[in-house]
Amino acid sequence: MSYEPRIVGFLCNWCSYTGADLAGTSRIHYPANVRVIRVMCSARVDPTFVLKALRAGADGVLVCGCHPGDCHYTEGNYKAMRRFALLQKALRDFGVEPERVRLEWVSASEGQRFADVVTDMTERLRPLGPSRIKPTLEADAVER
């Protein structure tokens, strides 16, 4: 079977998760590569969750929150954005391709946008091939 990237998606309850539900009620199709975990706010996404997902074998991690200015909790998405910038820098230093982690804004009315983001991310991940993070860490553990 051909390689299918596995994406873990962290979606905020108020905008992005509702937007993803809207993609469903509107029957907008997108690849089945994303597995969604609901959080109340994108600011709840601890960077260690992203690392944990990569270590557990995710080929990509998608974090979605409300558009700037629209956060249900006023400004959680801004905090997520700042954290994300630092996380991405650290991941780059570790040698992780920047395409593997992505932060996107998806509102409750943007079912199409959610589908587009997932489709685009899946297509960008395919040529990268499977993430080497999990096998590398496992090999390291064996060597020690």
């Binding site: 993803a20 539900d21 993609a23 469903g24 009620t25 029957r27 907008i28 199709h29 997108y30 690849p31 089945a32 969604v36 589908a115």
Partner: peptide, 11 residues
């Protein structure tokens, strides 16, 4: 959520 985020969006 295997309806809105699964059966309805995949083919």
């Amino acid at each position: 959520n295997i309806r809105e985020q699964c059966s309805w969006v995949h083919d």
